[in-house]
Design a protein around this nucleic acid. Sequence first.
DNA 1: ATAATCCTTAGAGTTAACTCTAGGTCAAGC
DNA 2: GCTTGACCTAGAGTTAACTCTAAGGATTAT
Lengths: 140, 140
Amino acid sequence: MKTYSIGEVAKELNLTVYTIRYYDKEGLIPFVERSESGIRLFKESDIAALNVIECLKASGMPIKEIKNFIDWCSEGDATLQQRYDMFMERKATVEAQMAELRKTMEVIEHKCMYYQTALEAGTEDIHKQKNIAASIPASR
Amino acid sequence: MKTYSIGEVAKELNLTVYTIRYYDKEGLIPFVERSESGIRLFKESDIAALNVIECLKASGMPIKEIKNFIDWCSEGDATLQQRYDMFMERKATVEAQMAELRKTMEVIEHKCMYYQTALEAGTEDIHKQKNIAASIPASR
DNA sequence: ATAATCCTTAGAGTTAACTCTAGGTCAAGC
DNA sequence: GCTTGACCTAGAGTTAACTCTAAGGATTAT
């Protein structure tokens, strides 16, 4: 079976070798086998597992919680429920993150328009005028 | 004009007073005025500014870059172009983050289904069977 | 066979963003 | 007038996730 070196895996996953060794130290990839001389030999399935780890990381999960999941995987079918629950919870947090990003985007888009208008006018005062203008009728 | 204490602002924005003081230390809120005895007096507009800061933070912008923006704001109309460019760039990065979150979500949803099937079968082997089954016709 | 370029470990250093502590000052209520 | 709780600063401590260094072993290319 073909295997890959840590450098090859790092390049493929856009990680540094330091990061992969750090993940190993933290117990995220206990399944990676070694050559007689101690060199890590990554199988295709190990790379797939690293991709899942990257996905969990992208979902905002801290390394220690990812380790829990990896431990559950090693424990077999007895932990299927935990793993299912974990992914359902991940789904909920990612949905929440998407909702927050949409809110953030709204504010940013509003600011883009604000500065576009200000740029066209050559001054930010154009926005302050709005309120002054609105107050004129009352002052008449 | 009504003002608010740091504690009131912290509660309203769901921050700690430590965090707000830290932002002040980092130069994010130089416009907040003080009482004679040195106590911070937050105006409504200061709270609005903190909301923009929170928005930039939510977009993944580091504090030091947010400070650049705050400095530009103090410099007036001469920096309108920079500020516009900055928000346009923010818009692009938030769009990229949304795209990545969508990818992450796909993987997670796939995993949810994977574990649902495994739970129903009582074993993860159900997924390994797929490949074995697929290889049977060839082995006949 | 020897240089270059991988790989290994243990452990120290870095960075961002808080988070807290110590030692004070200040303002409101009893 | 005194206690209580919120405010202040300077600076130390924490945490997560890397990131790198030192010292050495293995593999490949000429």
